[in-house]
Write a protein that binds this DNA or RNA. Structure first.
Length: 182
DNA sequence: CCCTGATTCGC
DNA sequence: GCGAATCAGG
């Protein structure tokens, strides 16, 4: 597997988005996380601030490049726990607080165990199923916007990288309550 | 032991 | 240039 311009471009973008080397390796496919890290260094991309891993290593002669550019690492836990939505009811707009944990279950970052999922799927919204991770990736305002799309190898509803992957339980609950009402 | 990125060095 | 091996650290 060689580093085509297209692959380098994706690597650069995903690295800038704050994905880890192993995540990027899984998305690109055919390369190890070491390969990704090596390529990142060869491209002179900015290293990571002290989020997630470490920034020190020196087996013998250490010549650190001292890339001390502190970049704010996106943190799932820092996301707002609630959001305000407006909902038309009759002639009135109703503002209501929605619990993101209940309505958008992927908002909770909870890495599952040793599930190995090759994620290079890059699915569009219409391609998602109840078994695919719906974590949004990329800029929503641009053409490259897509979803993780990872499928769990077993029936566990967890994506290795994005936590709970299924919207389906929420919809099922909603449909059942509607069915019961009628 | 899981993960992270950093570095070295043989290829 | 590439990336496995290895390192340091959370």
């Amino acid at each position: 597997m060689n580093w085509t311009d297209e692959r380098v471009e994706r690597l650069t973008k995903l690295w800038a988005e704050g994905l880890s080397a192993s995540q990027i390796a899984a998305q690109l496919g055919g390369v190890s996380r070491n390969a990704v890290i090596g390529k990142v260094h060869r491209l002179n991309l900015p290293g990571r601030a002290k989020a997630g891993g470490s920034t020190s290593a020196a087996p013998r002669p250490a010549k650190r490049a001292a890339t001390t550019a502190p970049r704010p690492q996106s943190n799932f836990a820092a996301r707002p726990q609630t959001r305000t939505v407006q909902r038309p009811v009759g002639a009135n707009m109703v503002r209501e607080e929605m619990d993101m944990d209940a309505t958008q279950e992927v908002a909770v970052y909870k890495p599952a165990g040793n599930i190995v999922v090759p994620i290079n799927r890059k699915l569009a919204l219409t391609e998602l199923t109840e078994r695919t991770c719906k974590w949004p990736m990329g800029d929503p305002l641009k053409d490259d916007f897509h979803f993780c799309g990872a499928e769990s190898p077993d029936n566990s509803p967890y994506c290795k990288y994005h936590g709970r992957m299924a919207y389906q339980p929420v919809n099922e609950r909603r449909n059942k309550s509607v069915a019961r009402a009628s």
